[in-house]
Amino acid sequence: MAEQIEAEIVANVLKVVAEEGQAVAEGDTVVILESMKMEIPVLTESAGTLSKLAVKEGDVVQEHDLIAVID
């Protein structure tokens, strides 16, 4: 089942760590967000392939915005 990774908090996309098409393990960092003056890593909750990366560095994400899909 595909895992949709959504933003939990309004944030700037500080750094994109993973690449589309890449294999990921559970707990890998996909992107690093910046919010509340903190750098918050966004981690995968399942292993698979990063089939979609919906953000780029400098983007602003709102709560529930899609960040990535793991298949």
Binding site: E8, I9, S35, M36, M38, I40, P41, L43
Partner: peptide, 8 residues
């Protein structure tokens, strides 16, 4: 837990 929502 700062990992989630910065711990807010």
């Amino acid at each position: 837990n700062p990992l989630r929502k910065g711990g807010c």
